[in-house]
């Protein structure tokens, strides 16, 4: 039952760097997808958000491609004149994951021993501003979106995070799989005690 039961393929350092550079390079250069495809992509995003809100993590895990690269880089305050890029795959990150790493994280939740998720957190994940473009790879789409993610626990404990996602979705039988995801939070100091959550 647990997603963590069998090990999933990881990424080598080179593969992860390649995936990161690909995500960094997504700026909507390709042609826009047609309305029907956009509608299907929106439906996928909405469903994904609902699975996360309802803690249906094993189903969500099924949406991840085996060659997944899932990344939330750190943001640092730097002057505009600074020649170092704002974001680099060599830097520390909040998430820098292969599918196997996601399985480890789900193992914590599925252990039923993570006291901080009991009673459970209540989530609302709003995904909006969806744009989708063709990529150089047939059947893979570049998808941009924004999100607001609200969490509440116990009584007064709440966190609202908003940000931007850049995804690469791959068309598979009957739907899509997530191949790449870059999550950009605007915060340089995470104004929350944890990221016990997926984006």
């Amino acid at each position: 039952m647990s997603a963590a039961a069998q090990p999933e393929p990881g990424l080598s350092m080179e593969e992860a760097r390649h995936a990161a550079l690909r995500l960094m390079d997504l700026h909507g250069q390709g042609p826009e997808v047609d309305d029907l495809l956009l509608r299907r992509i929106e439906r996928f995003c909405n469903r994904e958000a609902r699975l996360l809100d309802e803690e249906r993590y094993d189903e969500w895990y099924g949406l991840l491609a085996d060659d997944l690269f899932y990344w939330m880089p750190l943001r640092e305050n730097r002057y505009r004149r600074d020649r170092r890029g704002d974001i680099s795959p060599d830097n520390m990150a909040f998430f820098d994951e292969s599918k196997a790493d996601i399985a480890l994280r789900l193992g914590r939740i599925n252990s039923n021993l993570a006291w901080t998720e009991d009673p459970p957190t209540r989530h609302v994940y709003i995904v909006s501003n969806i744009e989708a473009f063709e990529t150089a790879v047939d059947g893979e789409y570049e998808v941009h979106s924004t999100f607001i993610q609200y969490r509440n626990r116990v009584e007064h404990d709440e966190v609202t995070l908003c940000g931007r996602r850049r995804d690469i979705l791959r068309a598979v039988d009957g739907g899509f799989q997530i191949v790449g995801r870059m999550i950009l939070l605007p915060q340089s100091v995470l104004l929350a005690k944890n990221l016990s959550v997926f984006f």
Binding site: A93, F94, F95, W115, K193
Partner: peptide, 21 residues
Amino acid sequence: FRRGSMRTFSPSGILEMDDGE
């Protein structure tokens, strides 16, 4: 080490997350 320390002891870390609470 970069990824291992992040995955255990950072705000998304499977160990640190339970400390802050």
